[in-house]
Computed example of a mutant assay.
Amino acid sequence: MADSDTETQDDYYSVLGISSAASVKDIKRAFRVIVKDHHPDISMDEEATDFQIFLNDVYETLMDPEKRAEYDAISGFQLGGTNPFRDVHAERDQVFVDEFSCIGCRNCNNVCPRTFEMEDEYGRARVVDQGLDTGEQIALLI
């Protein structure tokens, strides 16, 4: 949405206005409140459909125990969890796709076609092999 900034959208819990310790009931309640205000059939905002798709992804992730645990570990909400994409101390010798941030723009695949491939089911980039494209090509993605 126009009034949501990118940093907030990186944190699924902030998007829903709940804590990372929220219960399933809290997640459902927060999701319903936001949908009432921002659903494309109700909102006059031109970006409402895109935001609703994003909201649905947030809801699906947080309601599925396995996906939520994975999200929490990657996003640093789990005790001892770190996000390797944000940790400046992590070695940068391999290429990865942050599945929570990938928007399916095809840039990775276009710049490094031997390293990346577009996944059919969700339209996100996936790494299929390491070290085939040059370091200069990979650097264009950073």
Rank of each mutant, 00 (worst) to 15 (best):
D41W: 10
E70W: 05
S23R: 08
T61F: 07
H38M: 02
M63E: 03
D26I: 08
A30F: 02
L16W: 02
L55A: 06
R32K: 11
A48R: 02
Q52F: 09
D64W: 01
K25A: 15
S14F: 01
H38K: 14
F54R: 06
D41C: 06
K25P: 00
P40N: 07
A21N: 15
F54P: 01
V33R: 08
R32N: 14
K28L: 12
E47P: 00
L62D: 04
G17Q: 14
A30C: 03
I42F: 14
S20T: 02
K25E: 15
F54L: 03
Q52D: 13
A73I: 07
A48C: 10
K36W: 00
Y12H: 12
D50H: 00
T61L: 05
S75E: 07
S75W: 04
D45V: 00
D72Q: 04
F77Y: 07
S14E: 15
L62P: 04
L79I: 15
F54T: 01
R68I: 07
K36R: 14
S75Q: 13
A73S: 09
L55E: 04
D50R: 00
M63N: 06
D37F: 09
L62C: 11
Q52T: 15
H39S: 05
S19M: 12
Y59W: 05
T61K: 11
A30K: 05
D50W: 00
S14I: 08
R32E: 12
V58W: 09
A73K: 13
T49E: 10
P40W: 04
K67M: 07
A48F: 03
G76F: 02
A73R: 14
V33D: 04
V24W: 01
K28S: 08
D64S: 09
H38F: 07
F77H: 15
A30T: 08
K28R: 08
D10Q: 15
R32H: 09
M44H: 13
P40C: 06
